[in-house]
Write a protein that binds this DNA or RNA. Structure first.
Length: 338
DNA sequence: GTGATTTGACCTTT
DNA sequence: AAAGGTCAAATCAC
């Protein structure tokens, strides 16, 4: 958008935002009056396009950042694109001077499908134990605190915080702190602890969630590990569930189809997302990675939206190696699936 | 009975 | 001092 004036840029953002909002209202209205999967499918596609467009615009409009988009392809069994399920992973690293307890911190935005009766985002593959809840100033919903179930047994100090979005109650912001040192990652095995269950008492006073079946039908697992860019420590492992179909050994391989340039790909290969146990099995998984990265801030958005059209996706497999993220490494948009 | 959740109190950070 | 984060006893669910 280098030739676009600021006012035009803002107007464009505004128009797209309005369009997206109206599409949301339309979907809400249709769901009330005449629930229909076909309608939802189309509207989800529209919303997805709006989101992607906004993502691109906002990324391009931010100086000092680089962007990349890609789609992650998952074999049929591994992802089923529930059309109401947008899944974003927002990974960030801030160079605030705060002393940090954990070496890794990142945030995922998980959008749920409210029509499935879910009360919270899906399981992420680890076993968590809730240890606290706090009302946050200015937030409509309380923040929940979880630690790894195996903290004491295996000295695993991973924690996460779950905050329901004020603006979009179907979206949960999940902040992970620390990485798991336990050996209890689920790798596709349904886990007993889901946020749906964990937060049911807060968000579902009138009904108990259909935990078993619904959870199994709607489980979105994510593993994102960017590491702490301020330190030399670098993650080398991508944890992938067996449902990806190409799980090998220590999960060092996974399929990905991408529009990222080859040069960018390796630096980018840390990020993955996965979904499984979703209804409406599909043969492909489409998503966008939006990476914004500067010396002071790293943010990665992985969006696994259902799309209205399905671009041919070349699935490739590659080893994941420990990597050093150069704050200046170039990532450019070389394509965008729609 | 056992393990997970809740929630008020306490601690830490800014 | 205020807000966020954690602890731990009480309670709940299985």
């Amino acid at each position: 958008m280098e030739n676009t004036s600021t006012s035009e840029y803002m107007a464009l953002i505004n128009e797209l935002s309005q369009g997206m909002e109206q599409a949301k209202q339309l979907r809400f209205h249709l769901n009330l009056t005449s629930p229909c999967e076909a309608h939802d499918f189309l509207l989800q596609g529209i919303l997805s396009s709006y989101e992607k467009s906004l993502m691109i615009l906002k990324s391009n409009g931010t100086a000092g950042q680089v962007e990349a988009t890609s789609s992650v392809s998952v074999d049929g069994s591994s992802y089923s694109g529930d059309l109401n399920n947008n899944l974003k992973i927002h990974q960030e690293h801030k160079d605030t001077p705060k002393r940090r307890k954990h070496s890794h911190t990142w945030t995922e935005l998980v959008r749920i499908n409210s029509e499935n009766g879910l009360e919270g985002p899906t399981d992420d593959g680890y076993n968590w134990r809730k240890y606290g809840q706090k009302d946050i100033l200015g937030a409509k919903y309380p923040r929940s605190y979880y630690r790894c179930t195996y903290r004491h047994l295996q000295n695993c100090w991973a924690t996460k915080q779950v905050q329901r979005s004020d603006d979009d109650p179907t979206t949960f912001e999940i902040t992970y702190k620390g990485t798991h040192t336990c050996n209890h990652s689920a790798n596709g095995v349904p886990q007993p602890a889901s946020i749906e269950k964990q937060e049911s008492r807060h968000y579902s006073h009138n009904h108990r969630p259909q935990q078993n079946q619904t959870l199994l039908n709607f489980q979105a697992n994510h593993r994102v590990d960017i590491g702490d860019l301020e330190k030399t420590e670098k993650p080398s492992l991508l944890s992938l569930p067996s449902t990806f179909g190409c799980l090998e050994g220590e999960n060092h391989k996974f399929p990905i189809s991408t529009f990222i340039n080859d040069n960018n790909f390796e630096s980018y290969s840390q990020f993955m997302s996965e979904s499984n146990y979703l209804p409406y099995q599909r043969n492909s998984f489409e998503g966008a990675h939006n990476l914004q990265y500067s010396e002071s801030d790293v943010a990665v958005i992985i969006s696994a939206n259902a799309s209205t059209t399905y671009s041919p996706i070349a699935t490739m497999e590659f080893p994941v190696e420990p990597l050093d993220l150069d704050p200046n490494f170039p990532i450019s948009i070389s394509g965008f699936f729609t």
